[in-house]
């Protein structure tokens, strides 16, 4: 089991909702797509790589063979998948403290949803309905969502400076270089693993050591 891949945490939550309320939820999601301003809170939180909601009733569960029994359920179900940075508590609490209204809007029609305030019932609700990930993969395990966005800024500014600096004098180059660093001061920064907050993070650390040893062996081979 591993909900963690480097700096990313995979959360899976499945919650029941009555079919007639599911339509309201779909309508709210549709409105959020049409009016992206509704998602400003999520963007501001800045700790999510990707998140999605899926709503399905029993007849919509994939049915692949005659011998597969068909699902017969009282409720429709809402599946939530999130890829975020930080620990479980940091993530859940950041919603509660930053955008409780938005969170409640997305879940309020779900059966026995306790609301995001107060914290303890909300924690219990998420824990109870959460499913553990067995295998989680991130293409950039040391990067937070902000690192991915910052890296694009660095690449753009660096290539532009390299191109513009070809004809400059040394002094002009120095001035331009300082301007480049000042402009990128929020985007630079070495990427390191997060502190160990769970045993899964320990496994991440172990894998990092393996990769470092492999890298060192490779470098040794090249030098030798």
């Amino acid at each position: 089991m591993s909900n963690i891949a480097g700096k990313a945490y995979a959360m899976n939550v499945i919650t029941p909702i009555k079919s007639y309320w599911a339509w309201i939820n779909k309508l709210i999601f549709w409105a959020a797509i049409k009016f992206p301003g509704a998602l400003t809170g999520l963007i501001t939180l800045s700790l999510i790589h990707y998140a999605r909601w899926v709503i399905l009733k029993d007849s919509e569960f994939p049915h692949l063979a005659k011998e597969q029994p068909k699902e017969k359920l009282h409720y429709t179900y809402m599946l939530f998948f999130s890829n975020f940075n930080g620990s479980w508590d940091q993530y859940v609490d950041s919603f509660t403290f930053a955008i409780p209204g938005g969170l409640d809007l997305f879940w309020k029609w779900n059966i026995r949803y306790p609301k995001s305030v107060t914290l303890t019932p909300f924690h219990k609700y998420i824990r109870y309905n959460q499913i553990e990930t067995i295998h989680y993969y991130s293409a950039y395990p040391l990067a937070a969502a902000n690192d991915v966005k910052a890296a694009k800024q660095v690449k753009t500014a660096l290539t532009q400076f390299h191109q513009d600096s070809q004809t400059l004098s040394d002094d002009e180059f120095m001035a331009g270089y300082k301007t480049l660093l000042r402009g990128l001061q929020h985007d630079l920064g070495d990427m390191y693993p997060t502190p160990i907050v769970t045993m899964a993070a320990y496994e991440v650390q172990e894998r990092k050591y393996k990769h470092e040893r492999e890298q060192a062996a490779l470098a040794g081979g090249e030098n030798g």
Binding site: I43, S46, H49, Y50, R52
Partner: peptide
């Protein structure tokens, strides 16, 4: 997906 959010 009913809603897909991209924060990256």
């Amino acid at each position: 997906a009913a809603l897909f959010f991209v924060g990256s």
